[in-house]
């Protein structure tokens, strides 16, 4: 089955990366990661717990906004998705601004929980559909959250991967570098090199990102679309013609 939309393809690619997690949380303005978490939960036979920020039906927290962070600090959260206005080759993430802080050339919404969750959550998956030199830069102009920390800094979590519309990178924390892992269909290693502003490692032959299974697509268009529409009505309507 190869009629997956671009977003459906990414949803499945992200869901694969959180397989086996007990608890996955999704933050603000993240419909594709949200759908990925809901798909992974459905594929796990509901063994996975999912916390979708802004959802009532798919969020177990009852002790206010702090509970997500407090529980993550205790190690009760296995995976989290994070975006970035800019991401660099050391997996530093900028969610604040490009250029001087008091007169920026571009302004993003803000750091959200990144400066904390990047340290606390063992598997942070960076996701940004736009794969251009504008986004994937040699050095971010503001570090909302650093990709790695020197020895002596308390840190149990950090980035493990970066997924874009062109490919998936794995992040090696010890070396502080990305490695091109798989290419999405229709994209080439040369193109990724040309469109990426930072240096990274790559095998001579890079594998293809596997396509969605028929089962995954069926779940996305049925159960996941319905569940996601509560929190992301516009996205669900655009993607699947779903109302909340």
């Amino acid at each position: 089955m190869n009629d997956a939309s671009a977003n459906e393809f990414l949803i499945v690619a992200l869901a694969r990366m959180i397989e086996g997690c007990r608890h996955v949380a999704v933050g603000n303005a993240s419909p594709v990661p949200g759908a990925a978490a809901l798909l992974a939960r459905a594929l796990s036979g509901d063994a996975m717990l999912v916390s979708l920020l802004g959802s009532l039906a798919h969020n177990p927290y009852t002790d206010g906004g702090r509970e997500l962070f407090d529980s993550a600090g205790q190690g009760r959260l296995d995976a989290f998705f994070l975006g970035g206005g800019e991401i660099d080759g050391q997996a530093n993430v900028n969610l604040v601004a490009v250029g001087p802080h008091d007169a920026p050339l571009a302004r993003f919404p803000g750091s959200f929980g990144s400066a904390y969750l990047y340290f606390a959550v063992p598997r942070v998956i960076l996701f940004r559909a736009e794969h251009t030199r504008r986004v994937l830069v040699p050095r971010v102009s503001f570090i909302s959250a650093p990709g790695t920390s020197p020895p002596g800094i308390h840190r149990s979590g950090g980035p493990t991967a970066l997924v874009t519309s062109r490919c998936a990178f794995a992040f090696d924390r010890a070396r502080g570098r990305f490695r091109l892992e798989t290419l999405h269909p229709g994209h080439t290693a040369e193109e990724v090199r040309a469109e990426t502003g930072f240096d990274y490692d790559s095998a001579p032959e890079v594998a293809q990102t596997p396509p969605p299974s028929a089962r995954a697509l069926e779940l996305i268009r049925g159960r996941v679309a319905g569940e996601l529409a509560e929190t992301y009505p516009s996205f669900a309507a655009r993607e699947w013609g779903r109302a909340a």
Partner: peptide, 29 residues
């Protein structure tokens, strides 16, 4: 960052002058 705002309000709830928070080190924040 989100947990910093929650924690700083919690300090006021408790009537203590500050609250510690993990993370943040190495951030331009």
């Amino acid at each position: 960052t989100c947990p910093a705002i929650h924690a700083a309000l919690q300090a006021s709830e408790k009537g203590v002058p500050f609250m510690p928070l993990r993370g943040l080190l190495g951030s331009d924040l």
